[in-house]
Protein backbone atom coordinates (compact mmCIF):
# COMPACT_ATOMS: atom_id res chain seq x y z
CA UNK A 1 0.00 0.00 0.00
CA UNK A 2 1.14 3.55 -0.65
CA UNK A 3 1.04 6.20 2.05
CA UNK A 4 0.04 9.79 1.24
CA UNK A 5 3.58 10.68 0.20
CA UNK A 6 3.71 7.57 -1.98
CA UNK A 7 0.54 8.63 -3.79
CA UNK A 8 1.95 12.13 -4.27
CA UNK A 9 5.28 10.74 -5.53
CA UNK A 10 3.54 8.55 -8.12
CA UNK A 11 1.37 11.43 -9.35
CA UNK A 12 4.47 13.61 -9.70
CA UNK A 13 5.65 11.18 -12.40
CA UNK A 14 2.76 12.45 -14.55
CA UNK A 15 4.19 15.99 -14.63
CA UNK A 16 5.79 17.22 -17.86
CA UNK A 17 8.00 20.23 -18.42
CA UNK A 18 6.00 23.30 -19.37
CA UNK A 19 2.84 22.27 -17.51
CA UNK A 20 0.82 24.79 -15.55
CA UNK A 21 -0.62 22.78 -12.66
CA UNK A 22 -3.29 23.41 -10.05
CA UNK A 23 -2.87 21.36 -6.88
CA UNK A 24 -5.84 20.84 -4.57
CA UNK A 25 -5.78 20.73 -0.79
CA UNK A 26 -4.47 17.60 1.00
CA UNK A 27 -2.47 14.90 -0.81
CA UNK A 28 -2.30 16.97 -4.04
CA UNK A 29 -0.38 19.73 -2.20
CA UNK A 30 2.29 17.10 -1.38
CA UNK A 31 2.96 16.54 -5.10
CA UNK A 32 5.01 19.75 -5.06
CA UNK A 33 7.57 17.95 -2.86
CA UNK A 34 8.24 15.25 -5.48
CA UNK A 35 8.65 17.10 -8.78
CA UNK A 36 11.25 14.97 -10.63
CA UNK A 37 14.65 16.54 -11.38
CA UNK A 38 14.72 18.32 -14.74
CA UNK A 39 10.93 18.77 -14.88
CA UNK A 40 9.88 22.43 -14.86
CA UNK A 41 6.28 23.14 -13.97
CA UNK A 42 4.49 26.26 -12.75
CA UNK A 43 2.05 25.81 -9.88
CA UNK A 44 -1.17 27.84 -9.91
CA UNK A 45 -2.99 28.85 -6.75
CA UNK A 46 -6.60 29.83 -7.49
CA UNK A 47 -6.52 32.69 -5.00
CA UNK A 48 -4.29 34.53 -7.45
CA UNK A 49 -0.70 33.30 -7.80
CA UNK A 50 1.31 31.58 -10.52
CA UNK A 51 4.68 30.29 -9.37
CA UNK A 52 4.08 28.99 -5.83
CA UNK A 53 7.36 28.46 -4.01
CA UNK A 54 8.16 26.45 -0.88
CA UNK A 55 6.73 27.28 2.52
CA UNK A 56 8.53 30.31 3.98
CA UNK A 57 11.24 30.31 6.61
CA UNK A 58 9.98 31.86 9.86
CA UNK A 59 11.45 35.26 8.97
CA UNK A 60 9.82 35.27 5.50
CA UNK A 61 6.21 34.66 6.66
CA UNK A 62 3.95 37.18 4.90
CA UNK A 63 0.22 37.36 5.73
CA UNK A 64 -0.40 38.79 2.24
CA UNK A 65 0.96 35.65 0.59
CA UNK A 66 -1.06 32.45 1.01
CA UNK A 67 -2.14 29.47 -1.09
CA UNK A 68 -5.68 28.21 -1.67
CA UNK A 69 -5.42 26.16 1.53
CA UNK A 70 -4.71 29.44 3.37
CA UNK A 71 -1.16 28.32 4.19
CA UNK A 72 1.65 30.85 4.06
CA UNK A 73 3.81 30.38 0.94
CA UNK A 74 6.60 32.06 -1.00
CA UNK A 75 6.88 33.10 -4.65
CA UNK A 76 9.47 31.74 -7.06
CA UNK A 77 11.37 34.04 -9.44
CA UNK A 78 9.06 34.75 -12.38
CA UNK A 79 5.85 34.55 -10.35
CA UNK A 80 2.80 36.63 -11.14
CA UNK A 81 -0.17 37.82 -9.09
CA UNK A 82 -3.75 38.40 -10.25
CA UNK A 83 -7.37 38.64 -9.16
CA UNK A 84 -9.77 35.75 -8.55
CA UNK A 85 -11.61 36.62 -11.80
CA UNK A 86 -8.36 36.37 -13.77
CA UNK A 87 -7.48 33.17 -11.94
CA UNK A 88 -10.69 31.44 -12.97
CA UNK A 89 -10.41 32.83 -16.49
CA UNK A 90 -7.16 30.84 -16.66
CA UNK A 91 -8.92 27.78 -15.29
CA UNK A 92 -12.14 27.91 -17.33
CA UNK A 93 -10.28 29.09 -20.42
CA UNK A 94 -8.32 25.84 -20.52
CA UNK A 95 -4.94 27.43 -19.85
CA UNK A 96 -4.14 25.16 -16.90
CA UNK A 97 -2.72 21.88 -18.21
CA UNK A 98 -3.32 19.63 -15.24
CA UNK A 99 -5.51 19.66 -12.14
CA UNK A 100 -4.80 17.29 -9.26
CA UNK A 101 -7.45 17.04 -6.58
CA UNK A 102 -8.91 14.81 -3.92
CA UNK A 103 -12.27 13.05 -4.07
CA UNK A 104 -14.80 11.23 -1.93
CA UNK A 105 -16.10 9.20 -4.89
CA UNK A 106 -15.31 8.70 -8.58
CA UNK A 107 -17.63 6.83 -10.93
CA UNK A 108 -16.56 4.55 -13.77
CA UNK A 109 -17.54 7.20 -16.33
CA UNK A 110 -15.34 9.84 -14.66
CA UNK A 111 -17.90 11.71 -12.55
CA UNK A 112 -16.44 13.10 -9.32
CA UNK A 113 -18.06 13.88 -5.96
CA UNK A 114 -15.95 15.77 -3.45
CA UNK A 115 -17.85 18.69 -1.95
CA UNK A 116 -20.85 17.64 0.07
CA UNK A 117 -22.06 14.87 2.34
CA UNK A 118 -25.83 15.27 2.87
CA UNK A 119 -26.73 15.57 6.53
CA UNK A 120 -23.26 16.72 7.48
CA UNK A 121 -21.91 20.25 7.59
CA UNK A 122 -21.53 21.61 4.07
CA UNK A 123 -18.41 23.72 3.75
CA UNK A 124 -18.76 24.54 0.07
CA UNK A 125 -17.18 23.62 -3.23
CA UNK A 126 -14.57 26.39 -3.34
CA UNK A 127 -12.98 26.27 -6.79
CA UNK A 128 -13.49 22.54 -7.38
CA UNK A 129 -16.51 22.82 -9.69
CA UNK A 130 -14.78 25.39 -11.91
CA UNK A 131 -11.63 23.26 -12.02
CA UNK A 132 -13.30 19.97 -12.92
CA UNK A 133 -15.59 21.60 -15.48
CA UNK A 134 -12.71 22.98 -17.50
CA UNK A 135 -9.38 21.26 -16.88
CA UNK A 136 -7.99 19.41 -19.86
CA UNK A 137 -6.52 16.73 -17.64
CA UNK A 138 -7.67 15.76 -14.15
CA UNK A 139 -5.93 13.32 -11.84
CA UNK A 140 -7.61 12.31 -8.59
CA UNK A 141 -5.54 11.48 -5.50
CA UNK A 142 -7.46 9.54 -2.87
CA UNK A 143 -7.69 6.44 -0.72
CA UNK A 144 -9.18 3.47 -2.58
CA UNK A 145 -11.72 2.86 0.18
CA UNK A 146 -13.40 5.06 2.77
CA UNK A 147 -12.57 4.79 6.47
CA UNK A 148 -15.38 2.26 6.94
CA UNK A 149 -14.07 0.11 4.09
CA UNK A 150 -16.49 1.14 1.31
CA UNK A 151 -15.09 1.40 -2.22
CA UNK A 152 -14.71 4.96 -3.51
CA UNK A 153 -14.46 3.77 -7.14
CA UNK A 154 -18.09 3.24 -8.02
CA UNK A 155 -20.47 2.47 -10.88
CA UNK A 156 -22.35 5.67 -10.04
CA UNK A 157 -21.57 8.34 -7.48
CA UNK A 158 -23.93 8.32 -4.48
CA UNK A 159 -22.87 11.75 -3.15
CA UNK A 160 -23.76 15.08 -4.78
CA UNK A 161 -21.74 15.52 -7.98
CA UNK A 162 -18.95 18.09 -8.40
CA UNK A 163 -18.49 17.49 -12.13
CA UNK A 164 -19.48 15.07 -14.87
CA UNK A 165 -17.22 12.77 -16.96
CA UNK A 166 -14.07 14.69 -16.17
CA UNK A 167 -11.61 12.45 -14.26
CA UNK A 168 -8.92 10.91 -16.47
CA UNK A 169 -6.70 9.13 -13.96
CA UNK A 170 -6.85 8.02 -10.34
CA UNK A 171 -3.94 7.24 -8.03
CA UNK A 172 -4.93 5.55 -4.77
CA UNK A 173 -3.09 3.81 -1.96
CA UNK A 174 -3.68 0.55 -3.90
CA UNK A 175 -3.45 1.31 -7.60
CA UNK A 176 -3.10 3.57 -10.62
CA UNK A 177 -6.17 3.51 -12.85
CA UNK A 178 -7.26 5.26 -16.04
CA UNK A 179 -10.90 6.14 -16.60
CA UNK A 180 -11.76 4.76 -20.03
CA UNK A 181 -13.71 6.98 -22.47
CA UNK A 182 -16.31 4.20 -22.87
CA UNK A 183 -16.52 3.76 -19.07
CA UNK A 184 -14.61 1.56 -16.62
CA UNK A 185 -11.44 1.77 -14.54
CA UNK A 186 -8.48 0.39 -16.49
CA UNK A 187 -6.00 -0.99 -13.94
CA UNK A 188 -2.54 0.27 -14.92
CA UNK A 189 -0.33 -0.37 -11.90
CA UNK A 190 -0.67 -1.80 -8.42
CA UNK A 191 0.95 -0.66 -5.20
CA UNK A 192 3.82 -2.79 -3.87
CA UNK A 193 2.46 -5.86 -2.10
CA UNK A 194 -1.12 -5.39 -3.35
CA UNK A 195 -2.61 -8.10 -5.57
CA UNK A 196 -4.96 -7.63 -8.51
CA UNK A 197 -7.54 -9.65 -6.56
CA UNK A 198 -7.35 -7.22 -3.64
CA UNK A 199 -7.86 -4.27 -5.99
CA UNK A 200 -10.76 -6.05 -7.66
CA UNK A 201 -12.37 -6.65 -4.26
CA UNK A 202 -11.95 -2.99 -3.31
CA UNK A 203 -13.40 -1.63 -6.58
CA UNK A 204 -17.19 -1.49 -6.90
CA UNK A 205 -17.19 -0.03 -10.41
CA UNK A 206 -16.16 -1.93 -13.53
CA UNK A 207 -12.46 -2.83 -13.35
CA UNK A 208 -10.75 -3.52 -16.68
CA UNK A 209 -7.64 -5.71 -16.53
CA UNK A 210 -5.63 -6.25 -19.68
CA UNK A 211 -2.50 -8.37 -19.34
CA UNK A 212 0.14 -8.09 -16.64
CA UNK A 213 -0.30 -5.31 -14.09
CA UNK A 214 3.13 -4.06 -12.98
CA UNK A 215 3.95 -2.74 -9.53
CA UNK A 216 4.32 1.01 -9.13
CA UNK A 217 7.97 1.96 -9.33
CA UNK A 218 8.86 4.59 -6.73
Amino acid sequence: MLDKNGIARRIAQELRSGYYVNLGIGIPTLVANFIPPGIEVVLQSENGLLGIGPFPAEAEVDPDLINAGKQTVTMLPGSSLFSSADSFAMIRGGHVDLTILGAMEVSENGDIANWKVPGKMVKGMGGAMDLVASARNIIVAMQHCSKDGQSKLLKTCTLPITGLRCVKKIVTDMAVLDVLPQGGFRLRERAPGVSVAQIQAATEGKLVIDGEVPEITP
Binding site: E46, S83, S84, F88, I91, M121, M125, G127, A128, M129
Partner: peptide
Protein backbone atom coordinates in the same frame (compact mmCIF):
# COMPACT_ATOMS: atom_id res chain seq x y z
CA UNK B 1 -26.73 27.21 9.62
CA UNK B 2 -27.82 23.92 11.21
CA UNK B 3 -30.26 25.81 13.48
CA UNK B 4 -31.84 27.45 10.44
CA UNK B 5 -30.88 30.94 11.64
CA UNK B 6 -28.72 31.73 8.62
CA UNK B 7 -29.29 31.44 4.88
CA UNK B 8 -26.38 30.37 2.72
CA UNK B 9 -25.96 30.33 -1.06
CA UNK B 10 -22.89 28.35 -2.06
CA UNK B 11 -21.40 29.01 -5.49
CA UNK B 12 -18.38 27.74 -7.38
CA UNK B 13 -15.54 30.16 -6.66
CA UNK B 14 -14.99 31.14 -10.28
CA UNK B 15 -18.72 31.65 -10.77
CA UNK B 16 -18.79 33.91 -7.72
CA UNK B 17 -15.83 35.93 -9.02
CA UNK B 18 -17.31 36.24 -12.51
Amino acid sequence: LLAGELEVELLPQGTLAE
